[in-house]
Design a binder for these strands. Structure first.
Lengths: 165, 165
DNA sequence: CGCGGCATTCACAACTTTGTGAAGTTAAGG
DNA sequence: CCTTAACTTCACAAAGTTGTGAATGCCGCG
């Protein structure tokens, strides 16, 4: 555990974190390049990096950066901004925006709910299997509602502890 | 949307649900065979199937069943039981047990927390990047606590609506 | 004690995913 | 309007994953 001295960032320490954290994200289902890019952004001082910086730091081609960023933007995990007066593009994690997006796994939940609803319908709500599916469906509906409330509580908790970002 | 007539299960309708639901799980990061096996169990009347039944219904080899079941058991999504007086094994989804297990994504959360803690330590809690990681970490810690409370509320809600399973 | 049915393991082949180099596209700056 | 510096797209090669058949192991039963 190296002591970071004031303003000098130890690139090796950064890289270690990035790779380790990315590995966890990969294990959770994220593709590798998006995970690494996201990690690099999280660990950057400003939370903003250009495509070139990402490529150099992670030792990957511009194409890979492009693909990763496109993926992350789709998931609302980063936002892209044009650097004014240049064709350079910059990618940003918003501190908060990104876990709001993680909560967007509710999109996933909605898909599950849909499939379950279809199942209840076609198997019959009064069959044993249908009842099991219905209960599962009820669980997800419950969670979806609860998560919303939870995020409200988080925002309050956060403001109190960190002040507005 | 076919009308299920009393007790006769339409295998085609079952299959349609299984494949559709499994596809959603796959999209969320589950390997395909485990997803299909899990779907088949969810859609079965008793919630219990033997290896042979799974193989036949899903048209997959015993080896594939074995692998899928091992995966699901690791994740606590199904439990295995020996059929008394036979070397046959049976696999079960517990109605409740399984989404308790899904909540076990807290295991995933813990891994993330660990990686983030390491990052805060090695980048320094007073650097901009360190602060960002710390806030992210705080978010996951918050969620972890909240999820526990949510599951308590769910169990109550469930009992009221479905009676104990 | 040995037979027979089940499940598991292993090596391999088919398939899918992933990252790269190179060509293509867009827009700033002269 | 041409040049040039970005980003993006495309086709392909490399790497990884997945499911199968065959061999092996395990255990209840006769």
């Amino acid at each position: 555990m190296a002591e970071p001295s004031g303003s000098a960032r130890d690139p090796e320490a950064v890289s270690r974190f990035v790779e380790h954290f990315a590995a966890q994200l990969v294990e959770a289902g994220l593709p590798r390049m998006p995970a690494r890019v996201f990690g690099a952004l999280l660990a950057s001082d400003t939370g903003v990096l250009t495509s070139a910086q990402l490529g150099e730091q992670l030792k990957i081609s511009p194409a890979a950066v492009s693909g990763a960023v496109r993926y992350l933007a789709r998931q609302r995990m980063v936002s892209r901004e044009r650097e004014p007066g240049s064709r350079r593009e910059r990618y940003r994690v918003h501190g908060d925006q990104w876990y709001e997006a993680l909560t967007n796994r509710e999109t996933v939940i909605r898909r599950w709910e849909e499939a379950l609803r279809e199942g209840v319908g076609s198997l019959g709500p009064d069959t044993p299997a249908g009842r099991r599916l219905a209960e599962t469906l009820a669980f997800f509906e419950f969670v979806e509602k609860e998560v919303e409330a939870m995020m409200d509580r988080w925002r309050a908790h956060r403001e109190e502890r960190f002040g507005r970002g």
